[in-house]
Amino acid sequence: MLLARSRLWLLLLGALLTVLLYLLFPAARRSRPDEGKRGWRVGNGTVLTGMTASDPPVFYREVPAGAAGPGRPQVLFLHGQAFTSKTWETLGTLALLAEEGYRAVAIDLPGYGDSPPAHMVTAEGRRNFLDRVLQDLSMQRPVLVSPSMSGRFALPFLLAQGDRLAGFVPIAPVGTKDYTAEQYQRVQTPTLILYGDRDKRLAPQALQNLQHLPEHRVAVLPGAGHACYLDKPEDFHRALLRFLSQLK
Rank of each mutant, 00 (worst) to 15 (best):
residue 2 L to V: 08
residue 3 L to W: 10
residue 4 A to Q: 09
residue 5 R to P: 00
residue 7 R to S: 06
residue 12 L to Q: 09
residue 13 L to T: 13
residue 14 G to M: 01
residue 15 A to T: 12
residue 15 A to I: 11
residue 16 L to W: 05
residue 17 L to H: 09
residue 17 L to N: 06
residue 18 T to V: 15
residue 19 V to G: 08
residue 20 L to C: 08
residue 20 L to A: 14
residue 20 L to K: 02
residue 22 Y to N: 04
residue 24 L to I: 08
residue 26 P to H: 02
residue 27 A to D: 03
residue 29 R to P: 01
residue 32 R to C: 01
residue 33 P to G: 08
residue 35 E to G: 12
residue 38 R to N: 12
residue 39 G to T: 03
residue 41 R to F: 07
residue 42 V to Y: 13
residue 43 G to A: 05
residue 44 N to K: 13
residue 49 T to R: 13
residue 50 G to W: 03
residue 52 T to D: 02
residue 57 P to S: 04
residue 58 V to I: 14
residue 61 R to I: 00
residue 63 V to R: 03
residue 67 A to S: 10
residue 67 A to N: 08
residue 72 R to D: 00
residue 72 R to I: 02
residue 72 R to Q: 12
residue 73 P to V: 01
residue 73 P to M: 04
residue 73 P to I: 07
residue 74 Q to T: 10
residue 74 Q to R: 11
residue 74 Q to W: 03
residue 76 L to C: 08
residue 77 F to Q: 00
residue 78 L to Q: 02
residue 82 A to H: 11
residue 83 F to L: 13
residue 85 S to E: 06
residue 86 K to D: 09
residue 88 W to Q: 07
residue 90 T to N: 15
residue 93 T to F: 06
residue 95 A to P: 03
residue 96 L to H: 11
residue 98 A to Y: 05
residue 99 E to Q: 15
residue 106 A to P: 02
residue 108 D to K: 04
residue 108 D to T: 04
residue 110 P to T: 11
residue 112 Y to M: 15
residue 118 A to D: 09
residue 120 M to W: 09
residue 121 V to G: 04
residue 122 T to G: 06
residue 122 T to D: 04
residue 124 E to L: 13
residue 125 G to E: 13
residue 128 N to D: 10
residue 130 L to I: 10
residue 131 D to I: 00
residue 132 R to Q: 12
residue 132 R to N: 10
residue 132 R to D: 08
residue 134 L to Q: 03
residue 136 D to T: 11
residue 138 S to C: 04
residue 138 S to M: 10
residue 140 Q to I: 03
residue 143 V to D: 00
residue 145 V to K: 09
residue 146 S to F: 01
residue 147 P to I: 04
residue 154 A to N: 03
residue 155 L to I: 15
residue 155 L to G: 08
residue 156 P to M: 01
residue 156 P to C: 04
residue 158 L to M: 12
residue 158 L to I: 14
residue 160 A to H: 15
residue 162 G to D: 07
residue 163 D to A: 13
residue 164 R to H: 10
residue 164 R to T: 01
residue 172 A to T: 12
residue 172 A to N: 09
residue 172 A to I: 13
residue 173 P to W: 01
residue 174 V to Q: 13
residue 179 Y to G: 06
residue 183 Q to E: 13
residue 184 Y to N: 02
residue 186 R to V: 05
residue 188 Q to P: 03
residue 188 Q to M: 09
residue 193 I to R: 00
residue 193 I to W: 00
residue 195 Y to W: 13
residue 196 G to S: 10
residue 196 G to R: 05
residue 197 D to K: 14
residue 200 K to N: 04
residue 201 R to W: 07
residue 201 R to Q: 11
residue 201 R to G: 03
residue 202 L to G: 01
residue 202 L to K: 07
residue 203 A to M: 03
residue 208 Q to D: 10
residue 209 N to A: 05
residue 209 N to V: 06
residue 209 N to I: 03
residue 209 N to K: 11
residue 211 Q to N: 12
residue 212 H to T: 05
residue 217 R to V: 06
residue 220 V to L: 09
residue 221 L to I: 08
residue 223 G to F: 09
residue 225 G to R: 13
residue 226 H to S: 10
residue 227 A to V: 08
residue 227 A to Y: 06
residue 228 C to K: 02
residue 230 L to G: 00
residue 230 L to S: 07
residue 232 K to Q: 12
residue 232 K to W: 03
residue 233 P to Y: 12
residue 233 P to C: 08
residue 234 E to A: 15
residue 236 F to M: 05
residue 238 R to A: 15
residue 239 A to C: 12
residue 241 L to I: 11
residue 242 R to L: 06
residue 243 F to I: 12
residue 245 S to G: 12
residue 246 Q to R: 15
